[in-house]
């Protein structure tokens, strides 16, 4: 086996770097979808290649270890590398399991917060300012009186339009997929953050389409964020980025802007296929001897 099997990990870093540049001036919907796809592909390739490395441990099992010294047999990879690969796969699986469980558990609990009428809205009488899109069939918006009281009528319309956009476009699926990818391959954590941020941007742009006023949406996001602190110190810089973007014209760049990440994804697929072919050759040579 050659270096191909190690490349998906290295290329994940390149993918992250290139995606950052590609996201600029591109429509948030295209970025969110494109980067989710890229993250999922890169995570799958990374895990597959680690799996191949881990499988080479099989030659150290008692029945096969005897053949380890047969001349002419291709040597797979050094034992310690295979062990590290196996540990990384196990660690990734554990992180993925935890992420899926937390996500499910949180949404299941919040779904119990109330039966939404056809208005699709559940109000919680709580002074902490929160607005959350709770996915489901059909999903609803959960919002606290603490947030509603701090806003005027037009701003309330912005928040509702923003949250309904999350539900309508199934943003929770994109975010869960990107988070799953980052769980198995921690090098992709920046892509998870980028997908989450661009889903927020996407919902902001949908809110603009509803109320027809970018400045209003910008002020509303800023106002709600300033009111929220210091309840949850999460994603602050993301809010600043959203307000900045709302104070500039709507980005119109489409899919073509994502050519960079797409090209890297193709390379990742190619090296993964190469690694698989090389692994198969080693496995066949071994099986012939056995």
């Amino acid at each position: 086996m050659t270096f191909a099997v190690y490349l998906p990990a290295v290329l994940s870093l390149l993918l992250v770097a290139v995606s950052k540049a590609a996201a600029r001036h591109t429509s948030p919907a295209a970025v969110a979808r494109g980067l989710t796809l890229a993250a999922a592909g890169a995570a799958a390739a990374y895990t597959f290649c680690l799996g191949l490395l881990a499988l080479t441990l099989l030659d150290d099992l008692p029945p096969l270890a005897a053949f380890d010294r047969v001349p002419g047999l291709p040597k797979p990879v050094p034992g310690p590398i295979a062990l590290v690969a196996a540990a990384l796969v196990a660690w990734g699986a554990l992180r993925l399991f935890r992420d899926v469980r937390t996500r499910r558990d949180t949404y299941r609990r919040l779904r119990k917060a109330g039966a939404p009428g056809p208005a699709g809205l559940v109000v919680a009488d709580w002074e902490a300012p929160h607005a959350v899109a709770v996915p489901g069939r059909p999903g609803h918006v959960l919002i606290t009186t603490g947030l509603l009281r701090g806003l005027d009528g037009r701003e309330r319309e912005v928040v509702l339009a923003h949250e309904h956009a999350h539900l309508r476009h199934g943003h929770h699926r994109l975010i869960a997929l990107a988070a799953g990818a980052a769980a198995v391959n921690p090098l992709l954590v920046p892509l998870r953050e980028a997908v989450a941020h661009h889903c927020e941007r996407w919902a902001d742009e949908e809110a603009v389409r509803r109320v027809g006023d970018r400045g209003l949406v910008a002020r509303c996001v800023a106002k709600a964020a300033l009111a929220t602190r210091p309840v949850l110190a999460l994603g602050g810089s993301s809010v600043v980025g959203r307000v900045r973007a709302l104070r500039s014209p709507e980005p119109s760049g489409r899919w073509t802007r994502l050519a960079g990440p797409a090209a890297i994804l193709v390379v990742i697929a190619a090296v993964t296929a190469t690694a698989a072919v090389e692994f198969a050759a080693v496995a066949v040579a071994w099986l012939n001897v056995v």
């Binding site: 992420d99 937390t102 996500r103 949180t106 919040l110 300012p129 929160h130 607005a131 959350v132 899109a133 947030l147 928040v159 923003h162 949250e163 999350h166 943003h171 929770h172 975010i175 988070a179 989450a196 889903c199 927020e200 919902a203 996001v221 709600a224 964020a225 300033l226 009111a227 929220t228 602190r229 210091p230 309840v231 949850l232 110190a233 999460l234 994603g235 602050g236 993301s238 809010v239 600043v240």
Partner: peptide
């Protein structure tokens, strides 16, 4: 894991 409208700063 939630999409919060405005997380704290």
């Amino acid at each position: 894991v939630l999409q919060q409208f405005a997380a704290g700063l």
